[in-house]
Amino acid sequence: MLGLGLLSLVLGAVDHTTSWLDGPRSVLTIALTPIVVTADLPTRSARGIQSIFSSREDLRSRITGLESELIFLRVKTERMAALISENNRLRGLLGSAAKLQDNVLVAELVGVNPDPEEQEVVIDKGSEDSVFVGQPVLDSRGLVGQVVDVSPFSSRVLLISDERHSVPVQVLRSNLRFVAHGTGIGQQLELQHVNSTADIKVGDQLLSSGLGNRFPVGYPVGVVDKVAFMPGKPFADVLAKPSAQLDRSRHVLLVFTETRVLEETNTSSGKGDDRGG
């Protein structure tokens, strides 16, 4: 009893301070994949049953809706392509490096951390798909979080609403820069150290600022939800609602940017405290 207890303590300490146990952990993760898949079965089969019982008309109207949305998005992308090339030409004129297009990889959610204190999800892509620790994760509406743990066929994503997570943001309207912390409770972010005179109001859009070299610039992070200036307090209470559907999206996008080499040297230093850049 003493031996195994001490062994557990030593393992815990080693796992906390070094990354030596990442190899065994990913091997065990593969071995335990059937359990995760089984646990996901109810959700998966519920969706399957739903699609079996949806009627012809429903499907038809859904297809029409999706087709029109596709056309709409295509038009938008065409405009975007023109804008990107124009932007790069202007940047060239200014003498700064051209911005590269980000590549994305679609991943599906296979698990949710059952502990409500920890807002983490498990996705079905891992190091075999060259996912790396610190990789930004998006959904169709905004920033979801970042990869914190990779095994060959799955990885763990820390959501931006987790208490341990912070993301550098910028207000779209006024270009003010802040750090958005997760609050751990539901769908809420908190902006810290907002000066009482800062130009920020409800409805302001927050974009990732790209500072800290972890997240790419310009992805929507959230919308300011509440601004309260407390008399006598140096900073205002500012809460924001994440743009991404953190608790609902079933598919997420993994972003590969060209600054990856730089990020890897950052993340290899330790896994505990430097999350969120």
């Binding site: 906390h16 065994p24 335990l32 743990d149």
Partner: peptide, 29 residues
């Protein structure tokens, strides 16, 4: 007995992504 508890604890640690040894220790206790 204790060995079974320890093995199960390690498996739970990997499943939940907690520190390896956390559930192992508490299950052993």
């Amino acid at each position: 007995g204790i060995p079974t508890a320890w093995l199960a604890g390690i498996a739970v640690d990997v499943l939940l992504g907690s520190l390896i040894g956390l559930h192992a220790l508490s299950y052993v206790l």
